[in-house]
């Protein structure tokens, strides 16, 4: 068996970590105005159940009044929310431009895999109706969330009004509905769980095995999706009244920031997934609908899926 070096085995993870590290360093070091010390302290306090944002007992009557009336430490998180909100409106185009350039570079470098199908009738059932339902619901809801989310971000262009407001309301409702779909899809796409395949709980896991790049995409989908679901659900349900405002506003600010960050990262990896599955490979989208893929397509593009189906006795 051919032995691989550490670099060869983990190239995708290392490059992803380096890329995110460089972008993160530039952002945190030069662009953001968040008080990181406070944020870390606040996160620890929140994990222990104290979401008020008051890190230490007030030392003056004024501080006590500010904490009670307006919520504590305004200058730690709120200015960053304003900056990030403006940045999303003005500069997110550049982020997408950079992402598209990366995909174009990869496409030019690696070319496109086009499988040769000579026996179009030789089909293999790959996806179960349950898996297809979850996949399509996931695709539909993510598209809805992206469109309605950008509707909020870029409403300076639409100038607001009834339709953008309705889309914003759909963003919240679709987001709540997506929580269950995100969870189910995260589980059925966790191909590394196949070790427990004999357990009937895991029979719905998608066939095939992860390559490092796809594993990274799954990990970020799961992690950023968790961030989006948690922050979104809390933002919607944790609706402060005028009298509870000071107790929860700092928590909500941090949650909104988590929502901003997670949405940017998940978008990057979703685009990466679309590139890897449909652009660089001539994706067989009909299979997502019917559940059937040509045997030759699987042999040439996804041998791991065919292997898995054989092991399961489904071919």
């Amino acid at each position: 068996m051919e032995s691989k070096t550490f670099w060869e085995c983990n190239k995708a993870y290392i490059l992803t970590a380096l890329g995110l590290g460089v972008v993160g360093f530039v952002f945190v070091g030069f662009l953001m105005i968040m008080d990181w010390g406070y944020l870390i302290q606040f996160t620890l306090h929140a994990m222990m159940g104290d979401t008020s944002g008051v890190m230490s007992a007030p030392t003056s009557e004024l501080e006590q009044m500010v904490n009670a009336a307006f919520g504590p430490a305004y200058n730690t998180v709120a200015p960053e929310i304003i900056r990030a909100s403006n940045e999303r409106q003005e500069y997110i185009w550049y982020v997408f431009f950079a992402e598209i350039m990366i995909f174009v570079f990869l496409y030019v470098k690696n070319g496109r895999i086009t499988p040769t199908i000579t026996r179009p009738d030789d089909m293999v059932q790959v996806l179960t109706p349950f898996q297809r339902t979850v996949i399509w619901l996931n695709i539909g809801m993510i598209m809805m969330l992206v469109v309605t989310g950008f509707n909020i971000t870029w409403s300076l262009r639409s100038e607001g009004g009834d339709i953008p407001r309705l889309l914003r309301e759909f963003h919240e409702l679709t987001g709540l509905a997506w929580i269950s779909i995100w969870l189910i899809f995260t589980v059925i796409a966790a191909k590394d769980l196949k070790g427990w395949r004999k357990n009937t709980t895991f029979r719905h896991i998608l066939p095939g095995s992860f390559k490092p790049s796809k594993r990274g995409i799954w990990f970020f989908y799961a992690a950023m999706g968790a961030g989006l679901c948690f922050s979104g659900a809390m933002i919607i349900t944790l609706h402060p009244s005028s009298l509870t405002h000071a107790d929860v506003i700092q928590f909500r600010r941090v949650l909104l920031y988590l929502h901003f960050g997670a949405s940017v990262l998940i978008m990057f990896f979703i685009l990466d997934f679309v590139y890897a599955s449909a652009v660089s490979v001539k994706g067989y989208l009909k299979g997502l609908w019917s559940g059937e893929y040509p045997r030759e397509y699987l042999e040439q593009v996804a041998p791991d899926v065919l292997e898995d189906l054989k092991k399961a006795g489904r071919v």
Binding site: A69, I82, I152, G160, R165, A246, I249, L256
Partner: peptide, 28 residues
């Protein structure tokens, strides 16, 4: 013009913006 996104609530130092439940299915 307002779409009820709530960003003003996060930015306001005084908690002035208020949101009633009046949208579809009683959302903000």
């Amino acid at each position: 013009k307002c779409i009820g996104c709530g960003y003003c609530l996060y930015a306001c130092p005084f908690g002035a913006p208020q949101f009633g439940h009046e949208g579809i299915f009683g959302v903000k």
